[in-house]
């Protein structure tokens, strides 16, 4: 690998927004480090250990399942009823002239949140034993790429707007999925919108010794 033999500076941090170089300092709980040049956030103190992080990730996985299996909205009009799940909503775009947009819609509200939860869960199960999960580097890089495309909170607002829009000419009731969606929105913000850089350092240990050492 061509990268081998490069000198590294683990105690330094470089601002992503302007390339200013700083010494990493330990922060007290709730503190944040800001760049002096461009005022961007450099890093923040992590108030979440891996145990709690994993627990919240599992909670998010359960909420994700409920939000996807149960209908999110129910409507009725003159004795006729209908309901829709998230998947049906994305699939509804696939019919008609706007069909291609169904793909990014399904990605942003279903596939990307699912991948975020799955990858984080995978990483954290190993990280709590101070180990690197198989595929750790790929999973960490994927989490960085996925983050801007996760739109659970936009979907939540979309559900509220849709309910108000339809309630002017039919009866609309929230389905069980919408409550799970609301909780998922909060959980995914906590677990996925945080600084994951320090996972690299935390699990950056010697490869685990074989346990059957004589």
């Amino acid at each position: 690998m061509s990268g081998d033999g490069l000198k590294t500076f683990p105690e330094w941090v470089v601002c992503e927004h302007c390339d200013s170089v700083y010494q990493r300092v330990a922060l007290a709980n709730g503190q944040v480090a800001r760049c002096e040049r461009c005022l961007a956030l450099l890093y923040r103190a992590s108030s979440l250990d891996t145990e709690r992080w994993l627990a919240l990730t599992i909670a998010a996985a359960i909420m994700f399942m409920i939000a996807n299996l149960c209908p999110v909205v129910r409507i009725s009009l003159q004795g006729l009823h209908n309901e829709a799940t998230l998947w049906q909503s994305a699939a509804a775009l696939a019919h008609g002239p706007a069909a291609p947009i169904a793909v990014p819609a399904a990605l942003s509200i279903i596939v990307v949140p699912f991948l975020q939860i799955a990858l984080l869960g995978w990483i954290l199960v190993f990280a709590r034993r101070k180990r690197r999960a198989p595929g750790f580097a790929t999973a960490m890089r994927m989490l960085v790429v996925l983050r801007p495309w996760s739109m659970v909170e936009v979907c939540m607002l979309g559900l509220l707007v849709a309910i108000i829009k339809l309630s002017s000419f039919m009866e609309v009731a929230p389905g069980p999925g919408i409550w799970a969606m609301a909780v998922l929105m909060i959980l995914i913000t906590i677990i996925a919108n945080r600084d994951i850089h320090w996972l690299w350092e935390m699990v950056e240990v010697e490869p685990p010794q074989p346990e059957s050492q004589a």
Partner: peptide, 17 residues
């Protein structure tokens, strides 16, 4: 990314009605 709102609103109402 909040602009995706309209796309998702259309998806939801089209799936329901």
């Amino acid at each position: 990314y909040w602009s995706m709102l309209d796309v998702l609103v259309v998806a939801i109402v089209a799936a329901l009605v």
